[in-house]
Design a protein around this nucleic acid. Structure first.
Lengths: 159, 159
DNA sequence: TAAGAATCCATTGACGCCCATGAAATCCCA
DNA sequence: TGGGATTTCATGGGCGTCAATGGATTCTTA
């Protein structure tokens, strides 16, 4: 099974375009493949971080899976649907492997607005990936490493 | 089951390439085999040492296993994912059994940057192997031996 | 028709792929 | 058992391709 792995930093140009790292594109194409040109990625503000969650078909199905457990027409389901689907944007990938990040998403991730040139960091998380402001991600990474230290015994323990 | 054993030291050339010791390559091919050319090794900064941890498919599955227990969309999972997947680089092995070490990884392992030529040491650790700066590893090895001596005395004393 | 958006084209620099060289270990056969 | 032949590896370098990026051109829509 293909996963989104490792991190890449690309340029966000004056038009708001940014190239999706080639390895991620490859995963997307195999995963949520939908015919040439018509393919797109699901992208929404991360609930608990100043970042964007992105993925392909598999991610969408996972969201569906969360809702599947709840009864139809229940209030709880409606609320969760809104939370999960409400802010999702489907971004189309152009012929050169780039997407355009809408203003609303950039605001949430703390990426430069307007015609400013900036950098964005793509972080692979297995079955999805996140888009970060590079500096913000660097500090988050430090925290993550410390957490990983705590889990270290788990890593070494099982053979 | 094949294991990575013993240590080898190879040259890191001006392009940042280094040959993977043939015995390790053999293990990788049997382990994480994925069709010709498409194969690669998973490599990330060691959490508690100035070295790089590397392995094949088996190592990747181990990481998956750690995450499998955590619920989707939990903050804890995201955090651990960052540490586990975010720092991982998938290095492809060329036709001659070489990989290129990206700048970020070389920095962590204290390997010469830029076009400088250097040596790197491959250390087998069973189901994974590490990449070290030769001098750093040598001093580390001394400590390990001393520790081993102490253990032996303790063990012998009881018997 | 103007502004914004989407598509197309061009440049450049990195990376993957291929071949050549040389050293060392292994094998083979007398 | 020794010496020559063969194969395996590590290493160096050249070249072609592809990805990232910037800019131009066309399409859409108000």
């Amino acid at each position: 099974m293909d996963r989104f792995v490792s991190t890449f930093t690309n340029k966000l140009d004056a038009k708001g375009r940014v190239s999706i790292p080639a390895p991620f594109r490859a995963v997307l194409e195999r995963d949520g493949y939908r015919g040439a040109g018509a393919s797109g990625i699901y992208c929404y503000p991360s609930i608990d971080a100043a970042a964007l969650d992105c993925g392909g078909e598999r991610l969408a199905q996972k969201i569906d899976g969360l809702l599947a457990g709840l009864p139809d027409y229940s209030e709880e389901r409606d609320e969760l649907s809104v939370a999960l689907y409400g802010d999702v944007q489907v971004l189309s990938i152009d012929g050169d492997g780039r997407i355009v990040l809408p203003e609303e998403l950039r605001a949430h991730a703390g990426l430069a607005t307007q015609g400013t040139i900036a950098q964005v960091t793509f972080v692979g998380l297995g079955d999805k990936f996140q888009i970060w402001n590079p500096e913000a991600f660097e500090s988050r990474r430090k925290i993550a490493r410390e957490k990983a230290m705590e889990h270290r015994k788990l890593l070494g323990g099982k053979g």
